[in-house]
């Protein structure tokens, strides 16, 4: 555990030293500033004019929920896109000749090394996403004096979605030694494949073949469901009761399988 923690910490340090992380952080800060300015333009008293008593508080709660709902999907998308971009090179940099030799010559197992890098990447994203979400949450609190804890769940759902896609980045990094493949695959899953598979019932209206429907369903179950986790996040923010956790379970299974495969390949690889 000590070795994993050490590598995790130094991955965080590596991220802080890189421009891409600073860019990530700057975008987060800019988003917060933008939201702060927008918030300052909203006059709560004007919004509530004409509302009385209990209705007033309920209406205010509804306004806050709507704002959070309006924000959560762009924040989820922006957070994931930036996180993938910022973390995709951690593994390829570690695998560079002269660096990996040195690391593998130390009394640290390959599994510990890879897990340290994996958790390091997640920690980097968790910190940035936390700043963004907590920042927005604080602005809402200061503006409307409403404490909306469900909004903070987004920190964990976005980090979880990233963790699933990052496992794929780690696998492609271990196999190919470069960051492009992992980035492309992650973006493809997040932007194209996951939304398409989530809407497979619509696709089935056009594809009548039982065989192809089964193939699509198969891929739906084995691939990460970032699109549905996005919707699940919106539900959490709206304080709705979530009954179907299948997208989370199956995505987690994908994470475990892909990460295990990465470790297996890394263990066997010659450097």
């Amino acid at each position: 555990m000590k070795n994993i923690w050490l590598i995790t910490l130094y991955t965080l340090r590596e991220a802080f030293s890189r421009k891409v992380f600073i860019a990530f952080f700057v975008v987060v800060v800019l988003a917060l500033v933008g939201f702060g300015i927008f918030g300052s333009l909203v006059k709560v008293d004007t919004l509530l004019k004409g509302l009385e008593g209990a209705d007033k508080q309920a209406a205010l709660n509804q306004i806050v929920y709507r704002i959070e709902l309006m924000l959560i999907s762009p924040v989820y998308g922006l957070g994931l896109l930036l996180a993938i971009f910022a973390s995709s090179s951690f593994i390829p940099v570690m695998l560079e000749k002269g660096n990996i030799d040195l690391l593998l010559s130390k009394p640290i197992s390959r599994t510990q090394l890879l897990l340290g890098k994996y958790f390091g990447g997640i920690l980097v994203v968790f910190i940035n996403i936390s700043i963004l979400i907590v920042g927005i949450w604080l602005i809402i609190f200061l503006k409307f004096s409403i404490i909306s804890f469900p909004f903070l769940f987004a920190i964990f759902t976005i980090t979880f979605s990233f963790a699933v896609l990052y496992a794929l980045i780690v696998l492609s990094g271990v196999i190919s030694g470069n960051s492009m493949l992992g980035m492309m695959l992650s973006y493809m899953i997040y932007l194209i494949i996951s939304p398409l598979l989530a809407s497979r019932s619509i696709i089935f209206q056009f594809i009548q073949s039982d065989f192809w429907q089964k193939i699509i369903t198969f891929f739906y179950y084995i691939l990460p469901k970032t699109s549905e986790i996005d919707k699940l996040t919106s539900g959490l923010v709206m304080n709705q009761t979530i009954t179907n956790f299948q997208p989370v379970y199956s995505s987690f299974l994908f994470l475990v399988v892909v990460l295990s495969l990465s470790i297996y390949i890394f263990e066997k690889k010659d450097f």
């Binding site: 590596e14 560079e96 002269g98 660096n99 030799d101 040195l102 010559s105 130390k106 009394p107």
Partner: peptide
């Protein structure tokens, strides 16, 4: 046993930061 071993690789790369 690597805790009792030292290694200087050819063209080593240290984290530049």
């Amino acid at each position: 046993i690597k805790s009792r071993i030292g290694y200087l690789p050819e063209s080593h790369k240290f984290p530049l930061y």
